[in-house]
Design a protein around this nucleic acid. Structure first.
Length: 434
DNA sequence: TATCCACAGGAAATCAGGGTGT
DNA sequence: ACACCCTGATTTCCTGTGGATA
């Protein structure tokens, strides 16, 4: 934030000096990152065992079966796979399997998945980010696998595989990957799919399902006491001694347990609480810090999400914001958003008008993200539409929108749409209907 | 009870922008 | 220069529909 007046200036040198002099809270804060793989994973013995059993034959050069892992977010799916792969690599065997991780949420298209696999294996020549036909890459990949990996095994871990299946071309690429072995001479491959949706199998091509194996490993959600065990172990690594008040860990565990036992959430809470204590130059982390952390994490998450949305989606949200701000009583329906959007987008250069169809999709996305709620309702002669409500504090949204440079001008713009008599009249009828 | 509104939401086509190899 | 590739955002075209109203 820039300050126009010079009455206060942040003294960065002094800040660092104080920081280094101040109390030490963390010992190794990386241990609270979700990417951190601890030496042991509490309450995941049976999953570790099944994965180890399935993958062990790779050490002898046999083809391991492909399989799927299910579980809600923060149930340790990815961590467990990484853990087992580490252990497998440490074994005294001639064959060292390759592990290639693909997060289908990030590497999200067939082309990019093939390119990612290729580029991970190949040190020298790389597949360009776009331009080539897929079948050419596929052939090149086959050659590379055989030559570079030789007689070893290549595990392809497809994280968030459900996202891939939901997209066009997703089934095709999966099918190609499951059939890799038929086209390989030396090397063998095996697919490990990770998903947090059980239902995604319904959209899966049956041929893929059969080769991925009907058997799958389920990661149940952690309960509060299990979360506590996890946190205690991590806290020992992450924090200095005697920094956490005794109620801190149970509280983090309890809060995360409410959230379907999300360990990632629990770890985030624990870290954020520490960071808040650190920021406030406190020597001890208390329940207060955890509560504050809970609040901030929620807001941070929403803020990040909104900032990461495409400009048009942000403008849709801004439209909803403006309606609820200037006309709190107004019942917002899809058509209103369309009208307001087309009104305010004219105020911002370089943004074009969208169709109702497109806006409908954006509304769904915002709803899925939990920022708004949208309920399809029939208003009889007034048609079928969606009733939309903001699920997040207006203030928060206002703050985020304010940070979007292009939107500076519209923050206080009262849409003319709201003032039309026709609109007011119709809205009064809607109020009675609901 | 038939009608009809204002959309919902699926499928396919289109467009622009980033590339390739020849 | 040319033909062709992949992707993401969007448009076009479309069929479906709950329930107040005439």
């Amino acid at each position: 934030m820039l300050k126009n007046n010079n009455s206060y200036q942040f003294n960065i040198d002094k800040f660092y000096k104080n920081y280094l002099k101040g109390p030490r809270i963390f010992n190794n804060r990386d241990a609270l990152e979700s990417s951190y793989i601890p030496d042991d994973l509490p309450h995941r013995d049976s999953q570790i065992k099944s994965i180890a059993e399935k993958t062990a034959c790779a050490l002898l050069g046999d083809t391991p079966p492909s399989f799927l892992c299910y579980g809600m977010t923060g149930t340790g799916k990815t961590a467990t796979i990484r853990y087992v792969s580490q252990k497998l690599a440490q074994q005294n065997s001639e064959i060292k399997p390759w592990w290639i991780y693909i997060n289908c949420n990030i590497v999200s298209t067939p082309y990019r998945i093939l390119a990612h696999i290729y580029n991970t294996i190949s040190r020298k020549e790389k597949i360009p980010p776009t331009g080539l036909p897929k079948d050419i890459i596929f052939k090149r990949l086959l050659g590379l696998l055989d030559s570079k990996i030789g007689n070893s095994i290549c595990f392809l871990v497809l994280d968030e595989i459900d996202i891939l299946v939901g997209k066009k071309g997703g089934n095709e690429i999966l099918y190609d990957l499951t059939r890799l072995n038929e086209n390989l001479d030396n090397c063998k491959s095996s697919i490990i799919g990770i998903s947090n949706k059980l239902k995604f199998r319904e959209n899966l091509d049956p041929r893929i399902l059969s080769s991925l194996g009907e058997e799958h490993i389920v990661f149940p959600s952690y309960d509060a006491s299990e979360l506590r065990d996890i946190l205690i172990k991590r806290a020992k690594i992450a924090y200095q001694e005697n920094i956490l008040k005794e109620e801190v860990i149970p509280l983090c565990a309890a809060l995360a347990a409410k959230n379907h036992g999300d360990a990632r959430k629990a770890l985030q809470l624990l870290r954020k609480a520490g960071e808040l204590a650190e920021r406030g130059q406190n020597i001890i982390v208390t329940a207060k810090h955890v509560e504050k952390a809970q609040e901030e994490l929620e807001n941070d998450h929403i803020k990040e999400y909104i900032k990461g949305m495409p400009l048009q989606a942000q403008l849709i949200l801004a439209s909803i914001y403006l309606i609820s701000r200037f006309s709190p009583e107004h019942i917002i329906i899809s058509g209103d958003i369309y009208d307001v959007h087309s009104e305010i987008r004219g105020l911002i250069p370089g943004i074009r008008e969208l169709t109702k169809r497109r806006i409908s999709d954006y509304i769904n996305e915002l709803s899925l993200a939990g920022i708004i709620s949208a309920e399809v309702k029939s208003m009889g002669h007034y048609g079928r539409t969606k009733i939309i409500k903001l699920d997040v504090a207006m203030e928060l949204i206002g703050n985020v929108i304010l940070e979007i440079n292009k939107f500076q001008g519209i923050m206080n713009y009262k849409p003319a749409f709201l003032q039309a008599d026709k609109v007011k009249l119709k809205n009064n009828i809607f109020k009675k209907l609901i």
